[in-house]
Amino acid sequence: MPRLLLRDRVVVNDDWQYGEEAAASVASADASAPASLTALIIPFEQWLNERDRWITHSGPLGVVLAPAHRVEQLAPDLAHFALIGAHFTGPSEGRGYTQARQLREQWRFNGELRATGHVRQDQVFFMARCGFNSFELPEQELKAALAALDIFSAAYQTANDTGLKARLGPAR
């Protein structure tokens, strides 16, 4: 079963594979053929440890930041990634919101920014405002999460969303 996720306000089949998933599918098919064109997501830790190995991956590459990772650690390699994930370990984890804004605003990351881990409909509005554009959610919440992206019709702060009119900031 392919994973469904919410991306750019559409429920889609995930066209990315996690490292361990890719390894499993390679093993079951033809072990000698590397899944070199697969869009592959690996933990950022793995990139840090085995940079030389992963840099040769010819398909699109994505990394997932753990909450404790700093965006500056990843920034020098930004050009290698078409996807960056920020992982939420539970309902109280909040560092991913800052990671997202830093990636978008300070490092101008334009690729897919994905919220992974504990992601629920009640958080996606804030996540989207911080710059996330894709969300791994429990399947039964996908529809509600799509609606929740518009749960508030305005905002007080400018952030990373388009279309939401912000109250604070220079009069416009």
């Binding site: 984890e93 909040g94 919101y97 804030f126 996540m127 905002a155 007080y156 109250r167």
Partner: peptide, 12 residues
């Protein structure tokens, strides 16, 4: 106003 529904600082 700035702090209300602040998207980045609601899970400190």
């Amino acid at each position: 106003q700035w702090s209300s529904f602040h998207p980045e600082f609601t899970y400190l």
